[in-house]
Amino acid sequence: MLTVKDLYASYGAINALHGISLEVNEGELVALLGTNGAGKSTTLKSICGVLRPQGGSVEFLGEDLIGKKPEAILKKGISLVPEGREIFTSLSVAENLRIGAFSCYERDRYRYDLEEMFALFPILEERLQQPGGLLSGGEQQMLAIARALMSHPKLLMLDEPSLGLSPTMVDQIFDLIATLRDRGTTILLVEQNAERALRVADRAYVLKTGSMEFSGTPAELESELDIASVYFGGTKDGSGEVTV
């Protein structure tokens, strides 16, 4: 479905990605793991057109996405839940959702979608008229995901959805991601919380300072590589708990 090949990207003089490749097939949940600064967010930004990569290709459903505007890429069916949630704080929850449905608005379907979102996230119905900025972190994350789902994406990309959330909220978010996966949504999940991400993922990639270090199933990853090394750069026998 999504094929990224040999992607190069940089911020000014600093290279952020050195030729990474990855693939997401329909119906899969693929986790993209790595430490801070490994290039995870840069990869997502390059895919959705916020950042223009220096080289390589991004193909989605057989179409080249490089050079396309973010709004055009959304129309192709890729929706991003950005890092830090990026809720429109001065807009109400309802307005946030309405903007989420900007590209595919039909009155009846919109109503139906809203009901569906309320079923997934009951809290949003309660808070419908409140400004997005007044929601708690977890509620904002739910709103961000709901907002992204309103465009009926073929591929949903989540950038660090558990970041900065309380443990119970993290549980809820991962349950939700599992639910979405079970419903057949194709997901590319970027996470620092490798343990949790691997529990829900079908396949995983590990990025390290801009290069792809590993790809395979979670089981393969566990056997080949100590997860801790992903974080601390240690060896397989390196000690250390995986902390988040």
Binding site: V50, S79, L91, E95, F102, C104, S151
Partner: peptide
């Protein structure tokens, strides 16, 4: 109106608004 809401959204977070499919 959607347009109005989109404009307010764009004034709040421009890039994110584009990610929602609103043309810059």
């Amino acid at each position: 109106t959607v347009l109005g809401i989109a404009m307010r959204a764009a004034a709040d977070k421009f890039t994110t608004t584009r990610l929602m499919g609103v043309p810059a």
